[in-house]
Write a protein that binds this DNA or RNA. Structure first.
Lengths: 204, 186
DNA sequence: AAGTTACTTTAGAAAGC
DNA sequence: GCTTTAAAAAGTAACTT
């Protein structure tokens, strides 16, 4: 009886410590990514829900914490790419993606596919591009997505190409390398998406 | 006017069987030219047939997995070759071991480009996995037939998880119906 | 810039860690 | 959960030429 008691206290303490660790990790990663406090709170809620639904069994606390933060950013409309999230996590990108798909399915988050437009303000300001370039990039994304060019394409690459194209059109040229670096895609991807997009826009 | 069902091609068949006899894989690896056996890596011995092209994983228990064949007939042919090879090595093999098809992978073409974003929402986010940042295909789990379909922007699709040849055909009919019902095909 | 190779996803079996 | 096998789809990446 006494042993059972001690065990309960021990597991309760361990559970408490684990939750504490998860929340502090979410906080650390969120700070590193520069996401607002509201998003950290959403991430914490997602993590607690995953904990209550027993989704952490067989998965690492760090992996679920990171996936919860990734999901929270998407839910709040300020997505980070898996690459960006992996940069501040100690879990490999592949595991973050898998864990995200799992908790998203199990918790019924039903998040829509990431809209490339949601990357525009952040990438553009990192490149010190004007408001005019941003709205041009947004327009390019809308027009080319409407013509079916978005299916299967990575949202970051799609956004990067549109920003590159818009920077040219607005005489605020950034090189493919500069855009590629902030979006964490290759120049080849930007080139490929760019060609399709300017054609869709009726340029070229 | 081409029928998507006519575009179905079987790409891979996975099947399992057994010879009803324990095997010494170390010895078999010596006697079977071209056999790959790395017990530290994987407990099965890998043996590849040229015609038909297939790969077999042979286990100590005598159970065998055959994969890579392009038809069910090819699976039987490839396994037949392996059974004969084993008999040639004085290894007793059951008369005609039962062969169970475990999975058939097929490809097909719906003939129209697909708006995967609209499809993800239309088919229902709860049954769909579409993460273009991770993979360009939309993953759709169908209940009847119980298969998984990968749909691509080009309209090309992959059907996997089925055990019968008919599953792919039924799945294509069903997915075409659902996409048409959503007004998202062509 | 083009070409090649390789990795991402799906399903399924096998034996063992 | 992982390991290995094979195959398709299309996108992306990392190399070499």
């Amino acid at each position: 009886r006494l042993r059972k008691w001690q065990e309960r206290i021990r597991t309760k303490d361990a559970g408490e410590r684990n939750l504490q660790f998860a929340l502090s990790e979410i906080d650390r990663m969120a700070s590193a990514l520069g996401v607002p406090r509201s998003v950290r709170e959403v991430a914490s809620v997602i993590y607690r829900r995953a904990l209550n639904e027993d989704l952490i069994r067989g998965r690492s606390i760090e992996g679920v914490s990171t996936a919860a933060l990734y999901a929270a950013c998407r839910q709040e409309g300020i997505p980070r790419s898996l690459d960006e999230v992996a940069d501040v996590s100690r879990v490999p990108q592949k595991e973050i993606g898998r864990t995200y798909r799992y908790i998203s399915q199990e918790l019924g988050l039903e998040l829509k596919p990431v809209d490339p437009k949601q990357f525009v303000p952040r990438f553009a300001s990192a490149l010190q591009l004007s408001e005019e370039v941003q709205s041009k990039a947004t327009e390019i994304i809308d027009v080319s997505a409407e013509q079916g060019l978005l299916s299967g394409k990575s949202p970051t690459g799609f956004a990067a190409a549109a920003i590159y194209a818009a920077s040219l059109l607005c005489n605020e040229k950034k090189t493919q390398r500069e855009v590629a670096d902030v979006a964490q895609v290759t120049e080849v991807t930007i080139r490929n998406r760019y060609q399709e997009q300017i054609e869709a826009m009726g340029f070229r | 006017m081409t029928n998507p069902a006519d575009s179905i091609e079987i790409q891979n068949v996975v099947a399992s069987t057994g010879i009803g006899q324990e095997l010494d894989l170390e010895a078999l690896a010596e006697d079977l030219p071209g056999a790959d056996f790395n017990p530290d890596n994987f407990p099965g011995l890998v043996y590849r047939t040229q015609e038909p092209k297939a790969a077999a994983l042979i286990f100590r228990s005598g159970k065998i997995v055959c994969t890579g064949a392009k038809s069910i007939d090819d699976v039987h042919e490839a396994l037949g070759i392996i059974f004969e090879k084993l008999r040639g090595l004085q290894i007793p093999v059951e008369d005609d071991p039962e062969i169970t098809v475990q999975n058939i992978v097929s490809s097909a073409d719906l003939g129209h480009n697909l708006n995967l974003n609209a499809l993800a929402i239309g088919l229902g986010l709860e049954d769909v996995e579409y993460e273009p940042e991770q993979f360009p295909g939309l993953v759709y789990r169908m209940d009847e037939p119980e298969v998984v379909i990968l749909l691509f922007g080009s309209g090309k699709i992959v059907i996997t998880g089925g055990k019968r040849t008919d599953d792919a055909e039924e799945a294509v009919k069903e997915i075409v119906e659902r996409i048409e019902g959503l007004g998202l095909l062509g």
